[in-house]
Write a protein that binds this DNA or RNA. Structure first.
Length: 227
DNA sequence: CTCTCGATGTTCT
DNA sequence: GAACATCGAGAGG
C-alpha cells in the first residue's frame, strides 16, 4: 500500500470524502508499533458558506489550518473530551471528517478481546470490561489464527472512538498526511462496495445545511457508526 | 432493544 | 455563559 499523494486531496471536498472510503488510515506509534483501519464513513464540510462548518465563523486561529494546504490534518476537541480527525481539501476552509474505521490490524498492547466467562464464547461487542467478562490476549500474527477477526469491529466506529484508538489528538493538528510518517492514509485493496449518501450527524443547528447529503458510508459495513 | 443524562475543555457571543 | 461535527453507562420495556 502506498501513501496517498497531495493531489489526491486537491479535488472537490465531496469527491475526496467519497474517494477516502476504502482507503486505510495508518498510525505508527513512538515505540515502532502500529495500528490501521479502513475508512468506512466520512462527511464533507464545505467552507465559509456551510453553516455546519467551523470556517463559517470565519478565518480564526482554530480554523486556520482549513485555509491551508490540502492533505493536512484539522483536529479539534468537542464536548470537552473527543478529538475529531479531519483532512483539509483544496478549497479554502473546507475539510473531510473521518467518522469511522474498520480495524485492519492493531498494535500488540491493543490485541485483546472480551471473553465471557460464563459460556466461553467470545464477544465482539463492547470494549469496557463488564461483569462476568475478562480480557484475554488474542493470537499473535502468524500463529495460524487471523488477528483481524479478533479485533472488536466497533472499536473505531465513531469519530471520537477512532481518534482514541489511534491516539490522535491536538499534536496532529496541521500534520502533513502525505509524508508517510506517524499518521497517514494509504491506498486500500480494490474491493467493490456501495456508497450511501445521507445527512450529516450532529449538525441540526445548521438549518438547510443540515439536510444536505454530505455524509457518506459503505453500505453494510459493520464498523459504520450507529445513529 | 430504547431513552436519558452526565462528563468535560475550547471557542465564540 | 452557552454551545458544541460524542460516547457510554444506567434505567426501563
Amino acid at each position: 500500500m502506498s501513501v496517498l499523494p497531495r493531489n489526491f486531496y486537491q479535488n472537490s471536498t465531496v469527491e475526496v470524502a467519497k474517494n477516502l472510503l476504502g482507503k486505510v488510515l495508518v498510525r505508527e506509534f513512538e515505540d515502532g508499533d502500529g495500528s490501521a483501519g479502513m475508512i468506512v464513513e466520512s462527511e464533507a464540510y464545505l467552507g465559509p458558506d456551510d453553516k455546519a462548518c467551523h470556517s463559517s465563523k470565519g478565518r480564526t486561529k482554530r480554523t486556520e489550518v482549513m485555509f491551508g494546504p490540502a492533505g493536512h490534518a484539522y483536529i479539534y476537541l468537542v464536548y470537552g473530551m473527543h478529538y475529531m480527525f479531519n483532512i483539509v481539501t483544496e478549497a479554502p476552509g473546507e475539510a473531510v471528517l473521518v467518522r469511522a474505521l474498520e480495524p485492519a490490524f492493531a498494535k500488540a498492547s491493543a490485541r485483546q478481546v472480551l471473553q465471557i466467562e460464563a459460556d466461553g464464547n467470545l464477544s465482539k461487542r463492547g470494549l469496557a470490561k463488564k461483569k462476568n467478562q475478562v480480557l484475554r490476549p488474542i493470537p499473535e500474527p502468524g500463529s495460524g489464527e487471523l488477528a483481524s477477526s479478533f479485533l472488536n469491529p466497533e472499536v473505531a466506529a465513531g469519530p471520537g472512538k477512532l481518534t482514541k484508538w489511534l491516539d490522535i489528538d491536538k499534536k496532529f493538528n496541521g500534520w502533513d498526511l502525505t509524508k508517510g510518517e506517524k499518521l497517514w492514509v494509504a491506498t486500500g485493496e480494490k474491493k467493490a462496495f456501495e456508497i450511501v449518501e445521507t445527512e450529516r450527524i450532529g449538525v441540526d443547528y445548521a438549518g438547510e445545511w443540515a439536510e444536505k447529503k454530505l455524509h457518506f458510508y459503505i453500505r453494510g459495513n459493520p464498523a459504520v457508526s450507529k445513529r
